[in-house]
Design a protein around this nucleic acid. Sequence first.
DNA 1: TTGAAAGCGCTAACAC
DNA 2: GTGTTAGCGCTTTCAA
Lengths: 342, 342
Amino acid sequence: MITIKKMAELLGTSTTTVSNVIHGKTGEVSPAMVEKVQQLLLEYDYVPNINARNLARNKSGIIGLAMKACRDKYENFIKDPFAGELTGAVESCVRAGGYFTMLYISDDITEIISSVASWNVDGLILHGMQAEDGAKITEKIKKPMVFIDCYLEETVPDYVNVGSQDRKGCYDITRYLIGHGHERIAFLADNRFGVDFERLKGFQDALREVGILYTEEHFIMLQPNGDDLSKTLDDVYKKVGDFTAFVCASDYYAAHILNDLKDRGVKIPEDISIVGFDDNVYSQIVRPALTTVHQDVTEKGSLAVDKLLQMIQQEEIGERIIRLPVEIVERDSVKKGKGMHV
Amino acid sequence: MITIKKMAELLGTSTTTVSNVIHGKTGEVSPAMVEKVQQLLLEYDYVPNINARNLARNKSGIIGLAMKACRDKYENFIKDPFAGELTGAVESCVRAGGYFTMLYISDDITEIISSVASWNVDGLILHGMQAEDGAKITEKIKKPMVFIDCYLEETVPDYVNVGSQDRKGCYDITRYLIGHGHERIAFLADNRFGVDFERLKGFQDALREVGILYTEEHFIMLQPNGDDLSKTLDDVYKKVGDFTAFVCASDYYAAHILNDLKDRGVKIPEDISIVGFDDNVYSQIVRPALTTVHQDVTEKGSLAVDKLLQMIQQEEIGERIIRLPVEIVERDSVKKGKGMHV
DNA sequence: TTGAAAGCGCTAACAC
DNA sequence: GTGTTAGCGCTTTCAA
């Protein structure tokens, strides 16, 4: 690999001159010299040594994409279609902005912090962070960062987040169910934090609005893991008689529950209606196809990177907390009774 | 951010000493000094500047994961469950080996090449490369690299690849169909290169073995894009009468075709049997669940990184061309007639 | 056991 | 226009 210094020697000139033409500052160099240097550049396939450049400039050209993996949930986090799509969107937007994407996936926030610190990333996109994570990372890392799908207003100073209208989406779809005559509706999720908690709130809003009293009976807690999952599925099956509709916090669960119930002979949507949230491959490919709440993951990733790049360039970023709009996608998993409470 | 130099000053010692205890060379340093340095390290949360370290060591600590995206196929490549799972597996294995993962996704091989070159990556994992790509990249980049799912024996010198038994897998499942009484079987794919071509060969092997003459009629070419896809689906529907079973080159197509046919009133597997290849979420979640050929993507990614790390450390890597075993997963998309030709 | 110093390749301030 | 030079933070050789 050829270096600037060597090329300068070869031409009997200085590194500054070579460096100048490399950076297109041809105003500072005589045309003849420019010509000669550019020839050498091509001839030797010059490629800058990024480590040296970054060291000298004290920047890195790297955008870190840090995702906290819940290893208890998925053995390989990025298998989740959400993670994959988000990663793809972020990478392509980062590349378009002239930066590179470095991936940090770990269930240990301190590991993420030290990796990020030592690479001296220019900015960070963060996903899956909870309150303490947010606090820790902003305390240690003083770099532009934007969160995705977090609810950390209280713990993170200068908080910037790109998320969805989780609460409204779930409110809407619950109202949709109610509008189709459903009154005995349950909400199913595997936790009560962040995104799922907001979705739960939307569910509660809808019930409250039509005068249904929300109680703990309305919440069915799911267990994500292998063995526990099948127990969860048993439990869900037992509740089928108690409700006419299930609002699942994600398509992932909605699809699995739908399939499991069907395999046990339950008719969807005749015996029970099921809706999800996300509108990903799960809801699209299952039959009956799931009525669900659509969110645009690619848009989410792109927007997050756009904002980050603006922050890096010290530009005005506008809204610091974005909730991307969501909309109901009607498919075939909801039984349509007479309208009520609409 | 504290530096080695500053810490040395603080302690009135030299950078060498500090550096030595950072690297655990405590044999070279007095216990008292070791103690003092370690305290400072903790107190100031010392994190090495990787750019400086790499510059000094003349390495980068980066493993590049380069995937050629077929933008004509997927607007966001990594949406594909395969890509997501592979990325996750690679990242976790790279991290375990003490390296970091930089992502390069592009449909333009020259863009990938120049990115990779300027980061001076220590090694490369490559996916989705065709003959010319392989030739170009090995010509320009002289670094350890391992390919995934490629068939480039002829174009790439010192070729190392981790793939699956594509040919055998497709042979097996075709024989499986034949064993269940199927004789009029078609193979469906959207191309005739690489992996899909190998799978086609396996299909042909099976037909040949039982004395069925393979003709162009047996191959149904699929169009991946939006509008063309629905035309493709029309075409496939029209062929239902001509065959008793469809061997699809991937679960993705198998699932979509299965759903589309069902939506048109075709009974699976009564009217036509369908099998796929991959055993990913598509085949698992569709109903009837797809009989398919299982491949272990996580294993594929891990193994590729293992081999790459061995190459970087100049160790013996054993087999240079790996074909991971595959196996049939029996589910419900094949009609079981009387055995024939078994 | 400790320290001084050269050097990794590039940048940028400054002098000529 | 062009060249000199002092870093950026870390590693590593060699001498003390």
